[in-house]
Amino acid sequence: MSGRKIRGLVAKPGLDGHDRGAKVVARALRDSGMEVIYTGLRQTPEMIAEAALQEDVDVVGLSILSGAHMALVPRILELLKANQQDNVRVFIGGIIPDEDVPRLMEIGVVGVYGPGTLTDDIIRDVRSAVSSVSST
């Protein structure tokens, strides 16, 4: 433990109305000792970037089931960068076709998790992604 709490934001961009997955991840992160800001449904990329800034989070988790990830995710990364929040690690959960994963990783996403992913795996990845930022 570094003594410093990991702060995360879990958000659901786009228009689909299912936030069960997002809530499961938020709870799992909490149970691993993190502080998780939960912002709820139908967040625009602008709202997500603004919340990430005000809350000074280390990581942002996006839950996307609508299929709009190739539009939403690059936009969110762009906004984070414009806010000088390049340090924020972004991961995605939801329904993401395999062929889109390489492109998402290329633009800076640290992990893509489909249905059935173990939350322990997400937690482990989040921890190592965050510690690689703070040690540089």
């Binding site: 709490k5 938020a26 709870r27 992160l29 909490r30 149970d31 691993s32 000792g33 993190m34 502080e35 998780v36 800001i37 939960y38 912002t39 709820g40 919340a51």
Partner: peptide
Amino acid sequence: FTGGAILGDRV
């Protein structure tokens, strides 16, 4: 128990 928290007021 875990020291973690869900901060949901922004919703």
